[in-house]
Design a protein around this nucleic acid. Structure first.
Length: 448
RNA sequence: GUGGGCGUAGUUCAGCUGGUUAGAGCGCCAGAUUGUGGAUCUGGAGGUCGUGGGUUCGAGCCCCACCUCCCACCCCA
C-alpha cells in the first residue's frame, strides 16, 4: 500500500521540531512577558460559529466535517451544493484563532476578569490551494486583549511584534492602518458600500501600479468621478504624521474618517515614545481581508524574503456581539509560525545548535554488562542528563556509527574491567579522546 | 475556482530521433575489521518508470484523461 498525507499537510522530523519549538518558545516567552495567559480551544467548532465571519472567500475555505450517522436522512441531494452542505455538516475545522476566542469569551464570561489577555498556539486549517508559504494546516500564535478600547493595547502589540522578531533576528516592517480611515475614504467619494472593493484594489497598489488599480476599481463598479475623487489618497506623502495631517484636512467633517485619523495619531505618538527597533509605517494601502476588523489593522513583512505576511492582526469591536455579548472590543495579533520558519530557513537565521537528543550513549557489550549500565543510566537520567543505552548487542561499528549519526557527544564503554573497577570509559566523540571516570565525575562534567 | 510546470530505486537525478535485460551518486545491508566511529575498498538488496487508457512490430520517451507535488493568480499566516 502506498501511503501519503493529505495535500497541504506536513510531517515534522525531529530536526524540524527542534527549530519549530525554538520559534514557539520565543513567541511564548514574549507573550508571557506581556502577561498573557494561555488557553486552548477545540479543533472542531460548530459551523454556525465559523460561517459568515471571514467574508465570502473565507466561507469557501472552511473545511467542513461530514456529520456522523445517517447524514443523508431527510436531505434533498438534488438541491444546489451550497444548500446541501450546511444540512449535512454541522461542524468544521477552525479557520483562525480569533473567532473561536470570541466564542470562548462569550461562553466563559463569568470566569474571566476583564480586560482579559490570552495567548493561544494552535493549528488552524484552510482549504486553500497550497503553494510557497501557504499550507492547509498551519500554526497560528495569537495574543489578544479583550474588554478594553485603549490604544495602549495596540502599542503593546507593536512592542511584542518588535520583541519577537528581534529575538529571532528577523528584520521586519510593521505596516499599520485603520479601518475607520478606509471607511472615511469610501464615505468621502460617496461609495460607502464599496469599502471592501476599494480596499482590495488599493491593497494592490504596490504590485500592479496605479493605472491597474484604477482599472480594477472601475471593474468593481466605481464611476470615473469616484475614482478621480480617490486621487488625494494616492497622492499622500511624507512621514506618518504628514500623511495624517493631510488626511485630517481631507476628512473635514467626516466623523468616521476623522476618528480613524485621531486613533492613528495617538498610536503613532505612543510608538514614537518607545522607539521600536523594527520599521513601523503607516500604510494606507493596507486593507486585510478578514471583515471583522473595525479599527487598527497590522501586518508584518520580513525584509529580503518574498513570502506573504508573517504576522497580522487588528481591532474588532463587535466579534463577541455576534455571539450575544455586545460592546466588548478586542484587539490582537497572530504570528504565522510556519512562515516564520520559512523565513528563518531562507535567511539562515536558526541557531546552529538546536535539538540534540542524547548526551551519553552506553555501548552494549552483552548481557553481563547490562545491569551495571542500566544502573548508571538511571542515575544520569535522574540528574536530567539525556542518556541512551544501546538496546542490542550489535557490532561495535554499528553502535559507534549510531552515536555519530545521532550526534551523541559522549560514548561510554562498560566491560569486565570497568565493572571490576566500578568506573566508566568515556569517549569524547568530537575529539576522539578517551578517559576513565567514576559515575559521579561523569555526571559532574555533563551537568553544564 | 483559474493558469503553468514536474512526476524514473529510500533519496537526488541521468536515460539520445521511440529499439534487446532501465542506470549513477548518496543512503541501506553484508564483509575486509568480534573493545572503538567518521575514511577507503569489495560484494549485495532495492523499480507495477505517478495511475488508467490509446498510437506502434516495439513506449520511461508520443497522444488523451485522471492524480500528486511545486509555482503563479485570487485570497491569506
Amino acid at each position: 500500500m502506498k501511503c501519503s498525507i493529505p495535500k497541504g499537510t506536513r510531517d515534522f522530523l525531529p530536526a524540524e521540531m527542534a527549530r519549530r519549538n525554538y520559534i514557539f518558545d520565543t513567541i511564548r516567552e514574549v507573550f508571557k512577558a506581556f502577561a498573557f495567559e494561555p488557553i486552548e480551544t477545540p479543533s472542531l467548532e460548530n459551523l454556525s460559529t465559523l460561517m459568515g465571519k471571514y467574508g465570502e472567500e473565507g466561507d469557501k475555505l472552511l473545511f467542513k466535517v461530514l456529520n456522523s450517522g445517517n447524514f443523508m436522512e431527510d436531505v434533498d441531494f438534488t438541491q444546489d451544493y451550497h444548500k446541501v452542505a450546511p444540512r449535512i455538516c454541522d461542524r468544521g475545522l477552525r479557520y483562525d484563532l480569533t473567532v473561536p476566542f470570541a466564542r470562548f469569551v462569550v461562553q466563559h464570561r463569568d470566569q474571566i476578569t476583564f480586560p482579559f489577555r490570552r495567548y493561544q498556539l494552535q493549528p488552524v486549517w484552510r482549504a486553500d490551494r497550497p503553494q510557497k508559504g501557504r499550507y492547509r494546516e498551519f500554526y497560528q500564535c495569537d495574543a489578544d486583549m479583550i474588554g478594553s478600547t485603549s490604544l495602549l493595547n495596540e502599542l503593546e502589540l507593536v512592542q511584542m511584534i518588535d520583541a519577537v522578531f528581534q529575538k529571532l533576528g528577523i528584520e521586519v516592517t510593521v505596516k499599520i492602518n485603520n479601518r475607520k480611515v478606509l471607511a472615511g475614504i469610501a464615505d468621502l467619494i460617496g461609495a460607502p458600500d464599496k469599502l471592501v472593493d476599494i480596499t482590495v484594489a488599493i491593497d494592490k497598489l504596490d504590485k500592479i501600479g496605479i493605472d491597474n488599480v484604477r482599472a480594477e476599481l472601475s471593474e468593481r463598479g466605481l464611476n470615473q468621478e469616484q475614482i478621480t475623487a480617490l486621487n488625494p489618497v494616492f497622492e499622500l506623502s511624507g512621514s506618518a504624521n504628514d500623511k495624517l495631517q493631510q488626511l485630517e484636512v481631507l476628512f473635514n467633517g467626516n466623523a468616521v474618517g476623522t476618528k480613524g485619523v485621531e486613533e492613528l495619531k495617538e498610536l503613532f505618538g505612543y510608538i514614537d515614545l518607545v522607539q521600536p527597533a523594527c520599521h513601523v509605517e503607516l500604510d494606507l494601502t493596507l486593507a486585510r481581508g478578514l471583515n471583522y476588523y473595525t479599527g487598527a489593522i497590522f501586518e508584518v513583512k520580513a525584509h529580503n524574503v518574498s513570502i506573504g505576511s508573517i504576522c497580522g492582526g487588528g481591532r474588532y469591536d463587535n466579534l463577541t456581539g455576534i455571539f450575544g455579548m455586545p460592546d466588548v472590543s478586542g484587539v490582537g495579533i497572530s504570528f504565522g509560525a510556519d512562515r516564520i520558519y520559512d523565513v528563518l530557513t531562507e535567511l539562515d537565521k536558526f541557531p546552529p545548535d538546536l535539538g540534540q537528543s542524547a548526551q551519553v550513549l552506553f555501548i552494549n557489550f552483552g548481557a553481563e554488562s547490562m545491569p551495571y549500565c542500566i544502573k548508571c543510566a538511571a542515575r544520569l537520567r535522574s540528574l536530567g542528563i539525556s542518556t541512551l543505552v544501546y538496546p542490542d548487542n550489535a557490532k561495535m561499528k554499528k553502535q559507534m556509527d549510531f552515536a555519530n549519526r545521532s550526534r551523541v557527544p559522549y560514548v561510554v564503554f562498560v566491560g569486565e574491567n570497568e565493572i571490576a573497577a566500578q568506573n566508566l570509559t568515556v569517549k569524547d566523540m568530537a575529539t576522539g579522546t578517551q578517559n576513565t571516570f567514576t559515575l559521579d565525575e561523569l555526571a559532574d562534567r555533563l551537568k553544564h
